[in-house]
C-alpha cells in the first residue's frame, strides 16, 4: 500500500486507478454503456477515457468535487454537449444497441428517450399545462390547434390525460390540479423543479438525467425530490449528479465517484462505495478530508 504513504492531505496522490475498482456486476439489463469516453473543452481534457455500464430502472449517482467532470459526463449521455461549440467528444455511448455519437443518430428521438432535468428549475414562462404538453406538441403527438380541430383531430382529452399522468408521476398533481392554467413561474422552487421533471416525463423517456436537481432547493423540497427519484426508478433509469453525499447514499443503487482531472475512480454498489471504498482517494473524499 505504498500509495497511502505518498498520500497528501489535499488528495493529490500518485494513486493508480485499478480496473477492479471500476468493475461493477449487476443483475438486469444495461441501459447505457459508456466506452472509452474522452471529452475536451478546447485543449483541456474534461473527461479521461471513462468506461461505465449503467443498469436500467435504477438510480445511478455521480458524485465528486466541483470541476471533476461529473456534469460533463451527464451531458454526454444525451449529447447536450453538442450545444457547446468548444466541446469535443470521443468514444462511444451505447443506448438501445446503438452508439448515440454515430453520425446518423436522430437527436430528436435520442432526447425524447433520454430526458434531462437541470440544476436550477427552468420552467418556460407559460402555464403549467403548456409546460407539460410543450414537448409532445412540438413532436406532433398532441395537437389541439384550430386546424387540427377542423380536420377532425382533437387531442384535448389526450392532453388532459397526459398532464394529469405526468403531474402525478412527478408528485405535483395534488398541489396544482386546480390551477393548471396559471403561469409556472408562480410556483415555488421545489414545485418548479418537479414540474420540470413532469415536463421531461411527458415526452416518454426511458432514461432521466438529473444534474443536481435539488441543489437550489430547501430541505423539505429536497426530500420531496429525493422521494420522487426513488419512485421514478421503478419505471425509469435515473442518472443523478449530486454534490450531496448523504443524498447519493440515501437514494442511489450504485455510485460512481469522479475525482479532479476528469477521472472515474471508483464505481460500484452504493453501500460498498460508502462503507468500504477501495480507493484511498475516494475514502478521503467521502469522509470529508478533501473536496
Amino acid at each position: 500500500m505504498s500509495q497511502i504513504e505518498t498520500q497528501t492531505t489535499t488528495g493529490e496522490t500518485e494513486e493508480q486507478i485499478r480496473d477492479e475498482w471500476l468493475e461493477y456486476e449487476f443483475d438486469g439489463e444495461t441501459a447505457l454503456s459508456v466506452e472509452d469516453l474522452d471529452v475536451f473543452y478546447g485543449n483541456d481534457q474534461a473527461l479521461q477515457s471513462i468506461d461505465m455500464d449503467i443498469p436500467e430502472k435504477s438510480v445511478t449517482a455521480l458524485i465528486g468535487p466541483s470541476g471533476c467532470g461529473k456534469s460533463t459526463f451527464l451531458r454526454c449521455l444525451n449529447r447536450m454537449n453538442d450545444r457547446i461549440d468548444a466541446a469535443r467528444v470521443e468514444g462511444t455511448v451505447e443506448f438501445a444497441g446503438e452508439n448515440i455519437y454515430d453520425d446518423d443518430v436522430n437527436l430528436v428521438e435520442l432526447r425524447k428517450r433520454i430526458g434531462m432535468v437541470f440544476q436550477s428549475p427552468n420552467p418556460f414562462p407559460k402555464s403549467i399545462r403548456e409546460n407539460i404538453s410543450y414537448g409532445p406538441r412540438k413532436h406532433g403527438d398532441i395537437d389541439t390547434g384550430l386546424v387540427a380541430r377542423l380536420l377532425g383531430r382533437d387531442d384535448r382529452d389526450e392532453e388532459e390525460e397526459l398532464v394529469e399522468r405526468c403531474l402525478r408521476g412527478a408528485a405535483l398533481w395534488d398541489e396544482v390540479h386546480d390551477r393548471l392554467d396559471d403561469n409556472a413561474l408562480g410556483l415555488s422552487g421545489g414545485q418548479q423543479q418537479r414540474l420540470c421533471i413532469a415536463r421531461a416525463l411527458a415526452v416518454g423517456p426511458d432514461v432521466l438525467l438529473m444534474d443536481e436537481p435539488a441543489s437550489a432547493l430547501d430541505p423539505i423540497a429536497t426530500s420531496k425530490i429525493e422521494d420522487l427519484v426513488e419512485d421514478l426508478a421503478e419505471e425509469y433509469t435515473v442518472v443523478i449528479v449530486t454534490h450531496n453525499m448523504q443524498q447519493a447514499a440515501r437514494i442511489s443503487d450504485q455510485t460512481a465517484v469522479f475525482l479532479t482531472g476528469g477521472e472515474l475512480v471508483e464505481y460500484g454498489d452504493t453501500d460498498q462505495i460508502f462503507e468500504n471504498p477501495q480507493s484511498q482517494r475516494v475514502e478521503d473524499y467521502i469522509t470529508g478530508k478533501f473536496g
Binding site: V108, G135, K138, A200
Partner: peptide, 20 residues
C-alpha cells in the same frame, strides 16, 4: 435555460426559437 430545457426535450432549434 429555456433553450437548454427545450433542446433536452428533443425540440429542434427553430421550434424552440418560435415557441419559447
Amino acid at each position: 435555460e429555456y433553450r437548454d430545457a427545450s433542446a433536452a426535450l428533443g425540440v429542434t432549434q427553430w421550434q424552440t426559437i418560435r415557441s419559447v
